Amino acid sequence: MTKIVAVTACPSGVAHTYMAAEALESAAKAKGWQVKVETQGSIGQENVLTAEDIVDADMVILTKDIGIQFEERFTGKPLVRVNISDAVKRADAIMNKIQSHLAQTA
């Protein structure tokens, strides 16, 4: 089973952080994938990814509108960087691109 982890953060640290997390979770689950999304919002990190979550992940999605804290955790993992607005509005398209990439590397 495909496992995706993601970290969402936006400059204001409020609505888009959580909207992006929800959209990515829904799009991944629609494909039958396991997904866990850490948010780095105005109240800090929530739903923090564990070392095991990261090791088991087939793909990491990071939003790129603002620096992600502790990004070094993902060194060596396949990584996709997306705009927070794309994560909110185009999560299905992001998952389709990931699916194509994973199919080519399988």
Rank of each mutant, 00 (worst) to 15 (best):
M1T: 12
K3A: 08
K3I: 09
K3M: 09
A6N: 05
A6L: 04
V7P: 06
V7I: 08
A9Y: 02
C10D: 05
S12M: 11
V14H: 09
A15K: 04
A15Q: 09
H16R: 08
H16N: 13
Y18N: 06
Y18E: 05
A20S: 03
L24K: 02
E25G: 09
S26C: 09
A27M: 01
K29R: 13
G32F: 03
I43W: 12
G44N: 04
Q45A: 15
N47H: 03
V48A: 11
V48C: 00
A51F: 03
A51K: 14
D53R: 07
D53I: 08
D53M: 05
D56E: 14
A57Q: 00
V60P: 10
I61G: 06
T63A: 01
T63K: 03
K64M: 14
D65T: 04
I66T: 15
E71H: 03
R73H: 11
R73F: 08
F74G: 09
T75L: 13
T75S: 14
G76N: 04
G76C: 06
P78E: 01
P78G: 09
V80H: 08
V80Q: 10
R81A: 06
R81F: 01
I84R: 10
S85W: 05
D86A: 10
K89S: 14
A91H: 06
D92L: 06
A93G: 12
M95H: 04
M95R: 05
K97T: 13
I98M: 07
I98Q: 04
I98W: 04
S100R: 12
H101E: 12
A103W: 07
Q104R: 14
